[in-house]
C-alpha cells in the first residue's frame, strides 16, 4: 500500500508512449534502423528479429542514449530527437541494456540506490522504492551482497531492479531473460504482466515462448525495417505447416521473416 499522488492519476496528454516516424538510427557508420514507423501504447510489447536486425540500436535510441540520425521520435509526448532537453522524459524511463556494466564494489542495494538517485527520484522515496524493486525481482536475500559476487542470473535481476525502481512509464528491456533459470523466467513473466498493466514495456528477446506467455503485442524487425506490428495471435496466424519452428508462434515468426527477406531481395 502506498499513497497515490495526483500526478500519477492525471490523464496523459499523449496518445502513444512511444511514437517513431521514419526513424533512422546509426550504429557507428552503419544505418542499423532504417525508416522505422512505430507506435506503442500501454502493455507488454515484444521486439523480435534475427541477429543484426537493429533491435539493440533501436532500444538505445528509445532509451535516449544515442541520437537518431533522422525521422522523429516522441517519448511520453515529448520529442527526443535533436537537441531537446531530455531530463523530463528520462525520469520516466527504465532501461536495461544488453550488456550492462556495473561497479563491482557496490552492493545490490547501493547500485539500485545510485540508479534511483541518478533518475532524480525524491530523496525520501528512494530507500522504500529500492527495497520494493529488489523484492520484486526476488533479490531481497542478496541485497547486501557486492555486485562482483553475484551469478549471471542474479546480475540480470539486479539490472531489472534498477530499471523498474522509478516505476517507469516506458520500460525498455534488452534481452532480460539471458541467464535466468526456468523458474526465474516464470517469475519474470509475472513481473512483466504486472508492470505492463499501466506502463509501456518493450522487451527485446530471442525466446518466442516468452513472447507468447507474457506479451500482448509483437514487433518484428528485420534489417532495420519493421516487418510486423500486431497482437501475438495475429503473428501466430501468419505461420503455415511448411514453416520452420516447433510451436505455432515460432512458425508465425519464421514465416514473417522469410517473407520479408524474399520481398527485399
Amino acid at each position: 500500500m502506498r499513497t497515490v499522488s495526483a500526478a500519477e492519476t492525471a490523464p496523459t496528454t499523449y496518445a502513444w508512449a512511444v511514437e517513431a516516424a521514419g526513424l533512422h538510427v546509426k550504429a557507428g557508420r552503419h544505418l542499423a534502423v532504417d525508416g522505422l514507423d512505430l507506435r506503442l501504447g500501454t502493455g507488454v510489447h515484444a521486439l523480435l528479429g534475427p541477429n543484426g536486425a537493429g533491435k539493440t540500436t533501436l532500444m538505445r535510441a528509445l532509451a535516449t542514449v544515442i541520437k537518431p540520425a533522422g525521422g522523429t521520435l516522441t517519448l511520453l509526448g515529448e520529442a527526443v530527437d535533436g537537441r531537446a532537453d531530455l531530463r523530463r522524459v528520462r525520469r520516466g524511463l527504465g532501461y536495461l541494456p544488453q550488456q550492462f556494466g556495473f561497479y563491482p564494489r557496490f552492493t545490490v542495494r547501493e547500485f539500485v540506490e545510485y540508479m534511483a538517485w541518478l533518475k532524480e527520484m525524491p530523496k525520501a522515496e528512494i530507500p522504500g522504492a529500492v527495497q520494493r524493486a529488489v523484492d520484486r525481482v526476488g533479490l531481497a536475500a542478496k541485497a547486501n551482497a557486492r555486485m562482483k559476487t553475484l551469478s549471471g542470473g542474479m546480475l540480470r535481476r539486479a539490472g531489472i531492479a534498477q530499471a523498474i525502481v522509478n516505476d517507469p512509464a516506458v520500460l525498455l528491456l534488452d534481452e532480460p531473460t539471458v541467464g535466468l533459470d526456468p523458474e526465474q523466467r516464470l517469475d519474470f513473466r509475472e513481473l512483466l504482466r504486472d508492470v505492463g498493466v499501466d506502463s509501456c514495456v518493450l522487451v527485446s528477446t530471442h525466446l518466442v515462448e516468452d513472447v507468447v506467455a507474457a506479451c500482448t503485442d509483437v514487433v518484428v524487425m528485420n534489417e532495420g525495417r519493421l516487418v510486423f506490428d500486431g497482437p501475438v495471435d495475429q503473428m501466430i496466424e501468419q505461420g503455415g505447416e511448411g514453416d520452420a519452428g516447433d510451436s505455432a508462434a515460432e512458425r508465425g515468426y519464421s514465416a514473417l521473416v522469410r517473407r520479408h527477406r524474399k520481398a527485399t531481395r
Binding site: V65, G101, Y103
Partner: peptide, 14 residues
C-alpha cells in the same frame, strides 16, 4: 572507461 556508461547516459542526471 566507465563500465556503467550505458545505464548512466539514459538517466536525467547525466
Amino acid at each position: 572507461h566507465d563500465p556503467a556508461w550505458e545505464l548512466i547516459s539514459a538517466t536525467p542526471k547525466a
